[in-house]
Design a protein around this nucleic acid. Structure first.
Length: 257
DNA sequence: AGAGGGATCTTCT
DNA sequence: GAAGATCCCTCTC
């Protein structure tokens, strides 16, 4: 039964608490409802939920290793890649973080939003980097490399858009081995900023494998030579022996058992 | 395998 | 006005 909206016959009469009804279930057909349910379950059944992201920054950076990033294209194609390299940016005292000293700007708003919020910023005017907000004020994790799992041909096409026609074909290991390369491969730009991975229709994380501490290389972050004592802190994490990692740190690996 | 330079433009000082 | 959580190409060893 459709809800009847009360008509206001006389505009001079005060009508308190008139609320415009939201689109109700009975405004759509049974088949539309069924379709909606199927979509909802597909989007959410195998997705990492909000509580997963609610971890301290460095714990989250390590927990991301082995998990699967999914990006759904407008035509329905789903691209998948296993996260194999991350960096934590702690905010506050971390001199390398965009949120150092508690700095808040229009650009870095997402760093202060709820854990699981995507923070995408443009770098060198040309590329994008993707981060995910963690627990902690202004803290976020940078995704640095993926092991491509699904949609490699599409990823390769996106990557080749920026390359010379004569350039050599990219190997699988070169598709997503860098923070901006993975954004290019998954066609992710500033429009992904502030999306909530626990509740977004075109990007989310699925549970993958658990990587144990003994299989994680801890080493300094890349490209932050300006950050004083923070330059050397071991806040980069990658899966030991994984060939899809962007930059290996042989010193750090040698120091492992 | 590694070094060096250019691209390119938003963001912040 | 300068810098930048990078990538790509070219040149050299």
């Amino acid at each position: 039964m459709p809800i009847k909206r009360r008509r206001i016959e006389n505009l001079n009469v005060q009508e308190p608490n008139i609320t415009v009804p939201k689109k109700k279930d009975n405004d759509i057909t049974v088949s539309q409802r069924k379709e909606q349910d199927e979509m909802t379950s597909k989007y959410f059944q195998n997705r990492l939920q909000s509580d997963f992201y609610n971890q301290a920054c460095t714990d989250l950076a390590k927990s991301f290793l082995g998990q699967i990033l999914v990006r759904k294209l407008p035509d329905g194609t789903e691209l998948r890649g296993r996260i194999v390299e991350t960096e934590s940016y702690l905010g506050g005292e971390d001199e390398a973080s965009h949120s150092k000293g508690g700095k808040r700007t229009e650009r870095n708003k997402a760093m202060y939003m709820k854990p699981g919020t995507v923070y995408v910023y443009q770098i060198y005017g040309v590329y994008f980097c993707m981060n995910i907000s963690s627990q902690g004020d202004g803290a976020a994790v940078l995704l640095r490399s993926l092991e491509p799992l699904e949609g490699l041909d599409v990823m390769r096409k996106f990557r080749e858009l920026r390359r010379k026609e004569k350039a050599k074909a990219l190997k699988d290991t070169e598709l997503c081995n860098g923070p901006s390369k993975l954004c290019l491969a998954l066609d992710m730009d500033k429009s992904f900023d502030k999306r909530d991975l626990s509740n977004d229709e075109i990007t989310w994380l699925e549970p993958g494998s658990k990587i144990l501490d003994k299989d994680i290389v801890f080493c300094p972050r890349i490209g932050i030579s300006y950050a004083g004592e923070w330059t050397k802190k071991p806040l980069r994490f990658y899966v030991k022996g994984n060939k899809y990692v962007s930059v290996r740190d042989k010193m750090a690996e040698a120091l492992m058992v």
